[in-house]
């Protein structure tokens, strides 16, 4: 007798017993709540997990945001209502962080906005171009697909360290610059270049993932449509404009939403590459939240939680806005 048959003999009655038990329980529940409400029962396990690991921490965070002091446990913390939010929004001029009580929070906001706009645009653009290139019949297509995806597999710390070595004063980049007669630069110390490199490195590290999604979207477009447009005399640009883009739009929105969320949450690459510097030039909201809540000797959990609520709500609004725009464009 083969091993598989032995296993089959053992497991079959067990499985049968399990199915019958589950069936009996479900029939019992259905008899009590009615078939209309059985849907709730099926989503209950997921809701429980969501409730315990997402909803409860969110509510706890909201509570922390309305408390002060430095104690860790919620019960020990004095309720201060919206004071932490008032502190965050206490500004003479919202466009000038130095006029705000929590200037670092506002620097974080402005840096985050700049980073998100630059990084998401770059990711969408370069991922699309790369996906279009990799969708063509080129030599060593599989190899290139792997090459572009490879950085995604690397730990953010490794990515940031590699680029730190490349960009340091005695690094590879300056060696190349000097080779062509240029002068070495402190790339990460220059306030303008620092933001550029932070965006560049994060795009380099992450675009492979979005390229893969777009590539899947491109491959799901039926080739017949291109054949039809070719018969109609469409050129390459018209193919792209009237066939590829409209059909790729839902995938593009997925990429947009995912990359936007990831960009707003960006921490690891930047933390290792520049530490948020020079000064606070590349310090984003998430780093402010972390520093305020955890890395100072006197840990301001309330202020940190309030800032994270602001970040969460901003992200929610942005995502809803994107989804709405996405729905409108697909209806049009």
């Amino acid at each position: 007798m083969r091993l598989i048959d032995i296993l089959d003999r053992i497991t079959r009655p067990l499985l049968l017993l399990l199915v019958m038990s589950v069936d009996r329980i479900l029939t019992l529940i259905q008899g009590r709540v009615g078939i209309d409400k059985m849907g709730y029962f099926f989503v209950l396990p997921n809701l429980l997990i969501f409730g315990i690991f997402v909803l409860f921490p969110m509510l706890l965070n909201l509570y922390y945001a309305m408390t002060g002091g430095t104690k860790l446990f919620p019960a020990d913390r004095p309720f201060v209502g919206l004071d932490n939010f008032a502190t965050l929004f206490d500004c003479d001029d919202f466009l000038s962080p130095n006029s705000c009580q929590e200037d670092l929070f506002w620097r974080g906001i402005f840096n985050t906005i700049q980073f998100v706009v630059l990084q998401v645009s770059a990711i969408v653009l370069f991922s699309l171009l790369t996906a279009l290139a990799l969708n063509r019949r080129i030599i060593a297509r599989g190899f290139f697909r792997s090459v572009f995806f490879y950085p995604v597999l690397l730990s953010p710390v490794v990515v940031a360290l590699i680029w730190k070595w490349v960009l340091q004063y005695e690094g590879v980049l300056n060696a190349i610059v000097e080779l062509f007669g240029g002068e070495s630069m402190r790339w990460l110390l220059d306030t303008n270049w620092a933001m550029f490199w932070v965006v560049f490195v994060s795009v380099w590290a992450l675009m492979g993932f979005y390229t893969l999604i777009l590539l899947a979207g491109l491959q799901s477009i039926p080739p017949e449509l291109y054949e039809a447009s070719s018969i109609d005399g469409a050129n390459t640009w018209q193919d792209f404009r009237f066939v590829t883009m409209p059909l790729l739009m839902p995938t593009m929105f997925v990429v947009l939403v995912l990359s936007l969320i990831r960009a707003v949450q960006m921490f690891d690459h930047i933390f290792v590459l520049t530490g948020g510097g020079p000064g606070t030039r590349t310090q984003l909201m998430v780093q402010y939240i972390y520093t305020t809540g955890f890395s100072n000797q006197i840990q301001l959990f309330g202020l940190s939680a309030a800032a994270s609520m602001v970040l969460g709500v901003s992200l929610l609004i942005l995502t809803l806005l994107q989804l709405r725009l996405g729905n409108q464009s697909s209806l049009a």
């Binding site: 002091g69 430095t70 004095p78 510097g277 020079p278 000064g279 030039r281 301001l300």
Partner: peptide, 27 residues
């Protein structure tokens, strides 16, 4: 050092940060 604050602003901010955190401890 990087010009985000003047020296006097930086010193005032150090004092503010210290005072704010200590107020939370005593609050």
């Amino acid at each position: 050092l990087v010009g985000e604050l003047t020296l006097d602003e930086a010193i005032e901010r150090i004092q503010d940060d210290v005072d704010t955190a200590l107020a939370e401890v005593s609050g």
